[in-house]
């Protein structure tokens, strides 16, 4: 017990443990973001997370739950709206992303009794990680990774060729919904680490770095997790020694790894 206590007791180790837990799911899901060109979509969900926080104060539910519910609602709304084809998807995403962020900020200002660390929400507050946060992260990670393993073949197939997958009897629409649910969960837990403005970076940069070295989809996911670990460990160490903000330091480390790999490594397969 004493070892666990001394590890979890130290805020640096708690932050590291939490960051590694997020990188564990951000890697595999980030690969889907890259493969399915959903970067802007991830951004929109992340922005709407702030609205979720406001809502969770309004109806007094746990913050994580409020974020997940809001993200799923926005995701489903996006899918339905994009089907009407009234506006191009990127326009739609832009409208929803920034409106959700703005509505979240405005409604927060109407709740003067609620003290929220806005900078922490926008850019992450890794060093304020509690034991309960760790529970959320590892619980969420276990759930998402299990779901991903079960749905793997269908998800990959519908990413490669949606119509072919449909003809082969893969429930493409339901899988899309499941993927959005997973995104929402990851955003809810990753928000704590890097904040809503930098979540997409944690999803995309390790996956894009991994692409350079990967030979098959599973290989790319594993490498994305490794680069995520490097980013979190490196970023936190940087933050510790230079007293720089933790979330942005993690993203900067991820970016340095990306530059290094693209600058030096030969392309594994094009």
């Amino acid at each position: 017990m004493s070892i666990i206590d001394s590890v979890l007791g130290d805020f640096f180790w708690r932050a590291l443990l939490g960051g590694l837990g997020v990188a564990l799911v951000a890697g595999p899901l980030g690969c889907f973001v890259v493969w399915r060109r959903m970067a802007y979509f991830g951004d929109t969900l992340a922005h709407s997370a702030l609205l979720g926080i406001t809502l969770s104060f309004l109806i007094s539910v746990p913050m994580n739950l409020g974020v997940v519910i809001t993200c799923v609602t926005i995701a489903v709304a996006l899918v339905l709206l994009s089907r009407t084809r009234a506006l191009a998807t990127d326009t739609l995403l832009g409208i929803l992303a920034h409106s959700a962020l703005a509505i979240g900020l405005v409604s927060l200002s109407f709740m003067p009794d609620v003290r929220v660390d806005l900078t922490g929400l926008l850019f992450g507050d890794l060093l304020a990680m509690s034991r309960q946060d760790l529970l959320w992260i590892y619980g969420g990670a276990a759930f998402v990774l299990t779901l991903l393993a079960i749905l793997w073949r269908g998800l990959l197939m519908s990413t490669i060729h949606e119509e072919l997958a449909r003809v082969e009897g893969i429930p493409v629409e339901r899988l899309r919904l499941a993927l959005m649910l997973m995104f929402s969960l990851v955003i809810a837990v990753a928000m704590k680490i890097v904040g809503v403005l930098l979540i997409t970076a944690l999803l995309i940069i390790p996956a894009a770095t991994a692409r350079r070295l990967a030979r098959n989809p599973e290989h790319m996911m594993a490498l994305a997790v490794v680069f995520g670990f490097i980013a979190v460990t490196g970023g936190l160490t940087l933050s510790w020694h230079l007293d720089s903000p933790a979330g942005p330091s993690v993203v900067v480390t991820a970016f340095l790894a990306f530059l290094l790999v693209y600058g030096t490594a030969r392309n594994a397969s094009r």
Partner: peptide, 24 residues
């Protein structure tokens, strides 16, 4: 079904064997 194109996203590494095995 043989679709008109197989336009695979450049970011998705995939071998012929793996693509075939995804048929189950």
């Amino acid at each position: 079904y043989v679709p008109q194109h197989l336009s695979l996203e450049a970011t998705l590494p995939l071998s012929v064997r793996r693509f075939m095995l995804l048929s189950g």
